[in-house]
Computed example of a mutant assay.
Amino acid sequence: MCGRIANTLPSDAMAQLFSATPANNLPSVPNFNVCPTTGIHVVMGADPNSADSTRRLVQMRWGFIPHWYKAPNDGPLLINARAETLAEKPAFRMACRERRCLIPVTGYYEWTKDDAGKRWPWYIHSDAPLALAGIWQDWSQGGENLRCCAVVTIGSNIKLSQIHHRMPVVIAQDNWDLWLGEQGHGAARLMQPADDDLLSFHAVDPKVNSNKASGPELIEPFE
């Protein structure tokens, strides 16, 4: 799964990297402890109702809200969506066909438990920013309107299975257009675990367990 992320890339650099037009209300970066239900950077394809064919870098709520929810907290918090059942689940099946997105991150956190039940955090990252596979939708009830998203996950590769049995789907740069629907059909084949050599991980300070923790020291190796 993916329950906390870090994003340290400036918004203008993200826009340039993804060839996207940035919105005016993007979240503040760097943020070394991005939590669910907060706003995150998301790359969408071009607006089909506009003559502009440029991708868009926007803010979305991290936490997918099914259309039948009466309120954002009307059911389970859906921050992740399993790739194996994405096309079948009523909450996700239309989004996986029509509303796929990319979620830029510098890295993400995962946790293990020791024999005493204490949770120990790990920071998982690469040498370059990552583009996580995502799905999104617009939710509206009683005058409240939210654009929301979830990270698509898959069973972990051999390397990451040491700390967790699931991992986000990472989309390689030469497949961004396919995942965003700019190159027709075939995005389903991208929902695979990343190669073992793409990601690295190290233990980090347990203070990241608090959603109030902040600062660059959160991603530093911890002994």
Rank of each mutant, 00 (worst) to 15 (best):
L180V: 10
R56C: 06
L218N: 04
L77C: 08
V105N: 09
M60I: 03
Y108I: 06
E223P: 02
V43T: 01
K159E: 12
V170H: 14
F222N: 02
D52H: 04
F64C: 06
A83I: 03
N7W: 07
D127P: 03
Y109T: 01
P36H: 05
G142T: 03
G45W: 03
R119H: 15
G134C: 07
A128G: 06
V43Y: 03
M191H: 10
R61E: 03
Q192F: 00
S200R: 05
Q16M: 09
A71M: 13
N145R: 11
P36V: 01
N175H: 13
D127I: 01
T85E: 06
R100C: 03
A95N: 00
T54V: 01
V204Q: 00
T21E: 15
P22R: 11
N24W: 10
D205V: 04
I5V: 14
V58M: 12
I5E: 05
H125I: 01
F222R: 02
D174Y: 07
Q183Y: 11
P76S: 14
F64P: 01
M94T: 07
I65G: 01
D197S: 06
I79G: 12
P104F: 09
D205Q: 02
Q183F: 05
K70D: 10
R55E: 00
I171W: 09
P216D: 07
H202E: 00
Q162R: 11
S214N: 11
N175T: 11
D115T: 09
H67Y: 13
M60G: 12
N49P: 07
N80T: 10
M1R: 06
A203M: 00
R97Y: 01
E144Q: 12
P76Y: 10
K113I: 02
K159I: 02
M1A: 13
A15Y: 08
V58R: 12
S53T: 07
S50A: 06
N7R: 15
I5F: 13
E98C: 02
A194T: 14
P36Y: 04
N33R: 11
N31M: 12
F222E: 01
F18V: 10
A6L: 06
L199Q: 00
E220Y: 02
N31R: 13
A23C: 15
D196P: 02
Y69Q: 06
S126C: 05
H41K: 08
I40S: 09
A71F: 06
D12E: 13
Y109E: 00
L190P: 09
F201Y: 12
A213Q: 05
L9Q: 13
L178Y: 15
L26D: 13
K212A: 14
T21H: 15
P90F: 03
P104I: 10
P193A: 09
A131G: 10
I163G: 01
L102K: 07
R147F: 07
F201G: 05
V105R: 04
R147C: 10
I103Q: 12
N211A: 11
L130A: 08
D138W: 04
L160V: 04
N209T: 05
K70R: 15
D52W: 03
A91E: 05
W120M: 01
P72E: 12
W111H: 00
A87D: 09
I135D: 07
V58C: 09
R4Y: 03
P48L: 02
A81E: 07
R147D: 05
W179K: 13
F92H: 02
N157M: 06
T8R: 13
V58I: 15
M44W: 05
Q162V: 06
K118E: 11
P27W: 14
L26N: 13
Y69W: 13
C2Q: 06
